[in-house]
Amino acid sequence: MGHRSIARVAGLARLACTAVRDAAFDGACHDAGLSRPTVVHTGEEGTRATRKLLIAPERPTAVVYDNDIMAVAALPVTQELPLAVPRDLPVVARDDSPVTQVVRPQLTAPTRDIAAYGARGRDPAGNDRRRCGRERTGYSGAPRAARQHLPPRR
């Protein structure tokens, strides 16, 4: 799609799932021939992290978020600057929850079966069996729900 620099707003660095996502994202960017990605780790400061990325001298051509709430929280920042999503900056959410579809513009996200994902979280005895790996998350490189998505400006 012509992206040159993709950034990620990630969860807390101390979380095991964040470390797995860090490695996967870094590897995917490397495999695509992109420069090492900018990753901002944050807890509840997704808006602040987004602003930091977007006012940098070398703004990313797309931003990926570790959760849908942070991705939605990015929209007011893009409007303030002003950057049109997705024309000027594609914003990619992670979970494809209903919130990504009710905001305007709708957000791009990987498509997955959220109900099946939740059902696999506990076995019949109620034991937690979640893992960060693909075998437990229900994510298997599923296609993305590209809503109103345009390539970056050249």
Rank of each mutant, 00 (worst) to 15 (best):
Glu44Asp: 15
Thr50Trp: 03
Leu89Lys: 02
Asp68Trp: 03
Thr47His: 08
Ser5Met: 09
Ala49Leu: 09
Pro98Tyr: 09
Arg130Val: 10
Arg87Phe: 05
Thr18Lys: 04
Pro37Ser: 11
Val103Asp: 02
Pro76Asp: 13
Ala49Met: 07
Gln101Met: 10
Gly46His: 02
Tyr117Ala: 15
Pro82Leu: 08
Tyr65His: 08
Tyr117Ile: 04
Gln79Tyr: 07
Cys132Ser: 14
Ala32Trp: 05
Cys29Asp: 03
Ala109Gly: 02
Pro37Asp: 10
Arg120Ile: 01
Leu12Ala: 14
Asn127Tyr: 05
Pro151Gln: 06
Val92Lys: 00
Gly118Pro: 00
Val103Leu: 02
Glu58His: 14
Leu53Glu: 04
Val77Ala: 08
Ser97Arg: 07
Asp128Arg: 14
Pro124Phe: 08
His30Pro: 00
Glu58Leu: 12
Asp66Gln: 12
Gly11Tyr: 00
Val85Ser: 07
Ala84Tyr: 02
Gly118Glu: 12
Val39Phe: 00
Pro37Ile: 10
Gln101Glu: 14
Gly133Ser: 13
Pro86Glu: 09
Val64Met: 08
Asp96Arg: 01
Tyr117Ser: 14
Pro57His: 12
Ala13Glu: 15
Pro124Lys: 07
Leu107Thr: 02
Asn67Ala: 04
Arg154Leu: 13
Asp96Ile: 01
Ala115Ser: 08
Gly27Gln: 13
Ala16Trp: 05
Arg130Asn: 11
Tyr117Val: 06
Thr42Tyr: 07
His149Ile: 01
Val103Pro: 00
Pro151Val: 08
His149Gly: 00
Thr50Cys: 11
His149Ala: 11
Arg147Lys: 10
Pro82Met: 09
Arg59Asp: 04
Ser35Ile: 07
Val64Lys: 00
Ala73Ile: 00
Arg104Cys: 05
Ala93Met: 07
Glu45Ser: 15
Ala119Gln: 13
Phe25Trp: 05
Arg14Val: 11
Val92Arg: 00
Pro37Trp: 04
Ala16Arg: 14
Thr18Ser: 15
Thr50Val: 10
Ile6Phe: 03
Gln148Pro: 00
Thr78Met: 07
Asn67Lys: 04
Pro90Phe: 00
Tyr65Arg: 03
Pro151His: 04
Pro76Cys: 12
Gly133Leu: 10
Asp88Trp: 06
